[in-house]
Design a protein around this nucleic acid. Structure first.
Lengths: 248, 248
DNA sequence: GGTTGTATTTGATCGAAATCAAATCAGCCC
DNA sequence: GGGCTGATTTGATTTCGATCAAATACAACC
């Protein structure tokens, strides 16, 4: 169900993929023009911090390209990722002045930013947008809750398998799959970032990746390029209900 | 920041505590009358299931009294709580037909229910309410993310201490504390439910409760009645930043 | 090609929490 | 009071993932 939004009608919009999720598909063109008036693009390099927890953030944004993440850090350095933003995901909290978590560019990232104050004005005057934001926030909440099950109850192997299936589900290259049963994609995260996502150490991530490879569940070309020869075999490993899902 | 809503202005409304969070404080009285027209009360006993994951739910609701929880269960029985609803919390997802998680009455619960379809109509016609729901959902998302840090990175002892401080923060009896440094409240959950909340086993919960008692961080009267003689000592144990917080 | 620095893998060991098992406590009903 | 039931505590042992440590792969740069 976090994939719900993928099923929503998309606006054909060549210059700004943002609108696909950030903006209600029912918006009138003049509303879209107002959005255009307050938007600008911004690029961040891999590893760069986009905002620190507690900072003022004078924009909200949508991810155009690349991956950004939200993380929380404890004083002693323990770190947990609490949000992973892929292209078309929304960043920022309308009506909140400050950011609650560190926002980092996990890969090179291109953001489409909307200036915060005028964006909020637009929301308050455009119920469509506010309703769309509610939908998106509910989707995020669903994703967070699925993530909680993973963190609280899954084994290391199940965590890795779940992560791979989550990334695969969102990966663009999905669109042209030659073989319906096979799956090929690139990992946008280092082993360390995966560990932060999964509540593991990077050593455990590496070991479990090796184990899945040894058992033929995945194949690796380089460190980041993954082939899943049999999707259902991967799904078996996630611990989730085998039903539904993106892959038939 | 999950406590943000507590700081919001509350409507004086003797018969229905719901409004305090569920409905925008800026609503006009005729909008409140419309809400009254579609609401009804419903009681559930401890242990009773309010809805199963996947069920249609023909109402949304606000918790008036007692505690309800959202849980996810894996086929082999592993269980993770993903939502804990205390009085004034909102239950249900506007514009979603079905429930995503099992909803259970953790104690005896009184709900103030709003019939779903008319409630949705009201939302779409009343931007205030839709914006209030967005605020509430953002609060829930913040809470979920704090919870993710707990599940992914905290030790068993830190989890217990964090849980106690979360419950204490929300407990009604807080309102009349004789001694600002001391804290007295009742646990609304069994050890098993705590385990489901924290991603632990009930034995570990029990052991860590005993350890905190042994170390003088908490005192126990019966199994459920907790006294925290020194709030800052408890906060030390949570692993969280010592700053801010409800207790000064 | 060699060097440097980072990312990743692999190995050995340790420890926190899970698991398995039993005892104790607290209501509750008669 | 006494027995019954479910909740909780406590104990013994195991196990999975963390930690500590070292080797290997890889890309960028000279």
């Amino acid at each position: 169900m976090p994939s719900r939004s993928l099923a929503m009608p998309e606006l054909a919009c060549a210059d700004c993929p943002i609108r696909h999720r950030a903006v209600c598909a029912r918006c009138e063109s003049d509303e879209l023009e107002q959005l255009d008036a307050i938007k600008y693009y911004r690029r961040f390099e891999a590893g760069q911090t986009i905002a620190w927890a507690g900072d003022q953030m004078d924009f909200v944004a949508s991810v155009v390209e690349g991956v950004a993440s939200l993380t929380q850090t404890m004083e002693d350095g323990r770190r947990q990722m609490v949000g992973l933003l892929l292209p078309s995901d929304f960043l920022g909290r309308p009506n909140r002045e400050s950011v609650a978590y560190d926002v980092t560019a996990t890969t090179d990232v291109m953001l489409c930013c909307f200036r915060r104050v005028p964006f909020q004005t637009l929301i308050s005057e455009t119920p469509h947008i506010s309703q769309r934001l509610l939908e998106m926030t509910l989707d995020e909440l669903d994703a967070a809750r699925e993530w909680m099950l993973l963190l609280g109850r899954k084994t290391a192997r199940e965590k890795i398998a779940s992560f791979l299936s989550i990334i695969a589900r969102r990966d663009a290259s999905l669109k042209n799959r030659p073989n319906a049963n096979e799956l090929v994609f690139d990992l946008p995260l280092t082993r360390e970032a995966m560990a932060d996502y999964l509540g593991l150490t990077l050593e455990t991530v590496s070991r479990q990746m090796s184990a899945l490879k040894r058992d033929g569940v995945i194949e690796l070309k380089g460190k980041r390029h993954i082939t899943v020869p049999d999707v259902s075999a991967l799904m078996e490993e996630t611990g989730d209900d085998a039903d539904g899902g993106m892959f038939g």
